[in-house]
């Protein structure tokens, strides 16, 4: 299966605990360099970017390990992926030379339409095959290990043959990709479907987890929204602890997009995540 991802492989370095980079963080990041081990950048922001934006990326890359996180490759599209996007993404990954990079297990383009939003895949064997085919094509262009993120989804498309853990496990097995486990998304999906995430912990493919995301969302009309707009809630901290106990994780990223707090508050959350990873001896 090509260059598969085995998180236990010594070649995947432990990056520690870091932030999903957003431009408002820039100045505070350099004032608090020691509290942030690595950064995850939104790859799309640097694909068709002006020189000023590329200067920003160089500045970040000179001081932090950087993981590119892509949004719009549409890895689950039955109609295939956009060649220009893949080419631009390959150029970015080549430029940064990260130990791994990530995308979402989702689709964003179909029927000639760019949705501009992560859409859930039907949990079918056909969808697994399509993802595997697209990943093979990606590997022809990007040799760096790819890890796939579980998304939030309120839509359950008809015709599902697999449940969430089965679908993810089958995709990772068939593609050889690692797992970017968004712990908040696991919690959000379970909560919105009335399930207990702690009760189904042993069904997830923890051995494939390379990186975690965590964040806080909000409720809207009874639905939990993964808005990255609030402090991480206690339920997600408990799930993160259980995830770190089970997974050979190499990096943990806090995501915050809205309602930005002082950097000190974000650093407190990073310290707490770092303590969890150290408790299970995930890195020195």
């Amino acid at each position: 299966m090509g260059a598969g991802v085995n998180p236990m492989d010594d070649e995947l370095p432990a990056l520690g605990v870091g932030l999903g980079f957003r431009p408002p963080f820039l100045a505070d990041l350099f004032r608090n360099r020691r509290g942030v081990d690595f950064l995850e950048i939104t790859a799309d922001h640097y694909l068709d970017a002006p020189p000023e934006k590329l200067d920003e990326l160089k500045l970040l890359a000179d001081h932090f390990p950087i993981i590119p996180h892509a949004l719009d490759l549409s890895i689950g599209s039955a109609e295939g992926m956009d060649d220009d996007y893949l080419e631009a993404l390959a150029g970015l990954v080549e430029r940064l030379n990260p130990p791994w990079w990530s995308e979402h297990l989702a689709f964003t383009r179909a029927g000639g339409v760019a949705i501009g939003h992560l859409a859930p895949l039907p949990r079918t064997r056909e969808a697994v095959d399509v993802v595997a085919r697209n990943v093979e094509r990606i590997r022809g262009r990007i040799a760096t290990p790819l890890i796939l993120e579980n998304i939030t989804a309120t839509i359950d498309l008809p015709g599902a043959e697999l449940d969430e853990p089965e679908f993810l496990s089958m995709v990772l097995d068939q593609t050889g990709c690692g797992w970017l486990c968004d712990v908040t998304n696991l919690y959000t999906n379970a909560e919105n479907r009335g399930r207990d995430p702690m009760a189904e912990l042993d069904r997830w493919p923890w051995g494939r987890a390379v990186q975690f995301h965590f964040a806080g969302g909000h409720r809207q009309g009874g639905t939990l929204i993964d808005s990255h707009a609030h402090t991480t809630p206690p339920e997600v901290w408990r799930l993160l602890d259980e995830a770190a106990r089970r997974a050979p994780v190499r990096g943990i990223i806090l995501e915050r997009d809205e309602n930005l707090p002082p950097m000190a508050d974000l650093l407190d959350e990073l310290d707490r995540a770092r303590a969890i990873a150290r408790r299970y001896e995930r890195w020195a």
């Binding site: 109609e79 179909a110 029927g111 339409v113 949705i115 039907p122 056909e126 969808a127 498309l157």
Partner: peptide
């Protein structure tokens, strides 16, 4: 259920 068709439908929806 054909994946291409269901994806196109969800995109339009």
């Amino acid at each position: 259920m054909g994946l291409a068709a269901i994806q196109a439908a969800l995109a339009r929806l």
